[in-house]
Design a protein around this nucleic acid. Structure first.
Lengths: 258, 258
DNA sequence: CCCGTCGTTCCACATAGCGGAACGCCGTTT
DNA sequence: AAACGGCGTTCCGCTATGTGGAACGACGGG
């Protein structure tokens, strides 16, 4: 439960935000106090400041939730994101071809953050998945993205992961992950064989900006009861081609120097 | 262009975030420097700290954009929001009845932030509108929300608005707005007669938590070339009833004490 | 090749955050 | 009903941390 950074004044504030975000219910003062080790006075001041900025709001029963200003920031971040914009038509095409859910994700540290999603049926919560962070080591997009990092950078991140067996198939050691990533780097694509969630598998391929300052991936996800592993494999060329097309568009539109 | 708060260390950091968010393109260091009056050293440190927290990311050409962590926070904020959750079925029903776009918004200071949206055709950017902030004084939801504030609180906000004529119909003075709000408070519903955008009008009604700690509204929006003002008026009972139903559900589910 | 601009780094200063401790509100107990 | 106790809020002196002027250095244009 120990939180890492808390570097500087801003770090403390973000740690509070993070603690509130992790809980999926409004969170009481004492819970926050327990989760991050800030003394009462300090926590109270941090919350006050965050509220003043609209990043946190208080419910009448002195529980706290994330503020609405975060939505505004995220809206701006999403709408102005070039990568997402460039990738979108390719995601749609891939969805047309496969009929299954297509994801676009970006690697942030050792987590994947989903930037976009195209799915068949008008889902109850189309929006819910966007912005969601998942562990890189047990998702297709995450492994694809990790695989194209320079060796030392990759190893650094692989060793900093806190492994957790979400399913029987989850990779739970740095050695195993690194071996897998070597294979993926060679192949140019990755699978998630129910490593994050039982009954869900996917095929993924990496994308990146020319200088690798941005590293991510795309994937086609499906429930395994409906789509076989073999079927998934037949989609690999489609996924890989879409990823290649996106990489090319990124190079062109963002300038080869980038 | 002058920014208001900047109170405390956190305020300075958020001011930077805000400046980046306002620009819809990645923004250069010098632009930021021009927009917020921070000296180079200070701005540079603020950006560094924000980047360390994942709230800002730098492009290779030293331009800056909002970071992906903001998406994660917003995702959590949205998914765990009770008001949105409670309102959702009513929004859907209202959309079924009218066939037009339905919005849910919350009043934050003198702005409306949109929490949810139900629209007919699978829009190209369903997600784009959510989180968007608009001036309260020229939107249906905003005026409806302002109208149910206690008199002194309402006047306070009305006087702090920086009025701007987006269209010929925009209300541009505190006096006019206050008069309008009195009428709206009496009626229980509000219109936006192309006050924010030419060719777009809407009918709205206020919603709130029992203690008014949360104040917002819902609206049915349509282009005026397709939907007449008269048609809009016939929808008023539907909108008002939906709002009432939401208010009731909020009271019940969040506890009458709240 | 030199010069000017703009971003980065450095450092002494002052401020803003820090957190221990005292306060007071409320719900609970006897 | 009164006293207790837990818990959030406020206060205040201390020091860490952010501040911003100034010097430095990296580009890019002339």
């Amino acid at each position: 439960m120990e939180e890492s950074a808390s570097t500087g004044t801003l770090g403390k504030a973000v740690a509070v935000l993070d603690a509130i975000a992790r809980a999926d219910h409004p969170v009481k003062f004492r819970d926050l106090r327990a989760q991050i080790g800030q003394p009462p006075g300090t926590l109270h001041r941090n919350l006050s400041n965050l509220m003043k900025e609209g990043l946190v709001r208080a419910n009448p029963d002195n529980s706290y939730a994330l503020g609405y200003r975060l939505l505004t920031f995220a809206s701006a971040a999403w709408a102005s994101n070039r990568f997402r914009e460039i990738a979108e038509p390719h995601l749609r095409a891939l969805h047309e071809q496969t009929g299954e859910t297509v994801h676009l994700g970006v690697l942030e540290g050792v987590e994947v953050i989903y930037l976009d999603k195209v799915e068949s049926r008008q889902a109850v919560r189309m929006h819910s998945q966007i912005g969601k962070a998942s562990p890189a080591y047990c998702t297709g997009v995450g492994k694809a993205a990790l695989s194209i990092l320079p060796g030392d950078e990759m190893r650094l991140r692989v060793n900093s992961i806190d492994y957790h067996a979400f399913t029987p198939a989850t990779i739970v050691s740095a050695q195993d992950l690194e071996a897998k990533l070597d294979v993926i780097a060679h192949d140019g694509f990755a699978f998630d064989d129910e490593e994050h969630e039982v009954g869900i598998h996917c095929a993924a391929a990496p994308i990146h900006s020319p200088d690798k300052s941005f590293v991510g991936g795309i994937s086609v996800t499906a429930p395994s009861y409906r789509v076989s592993r073999e079927q998934l494999e037949t989609w690999i060329p489609l996924v890989v081609n879409a990823a290649k097309a996106i990489n090319q568009d990124i190079s062109i539109q963002l300038g080869p120097r980038a």
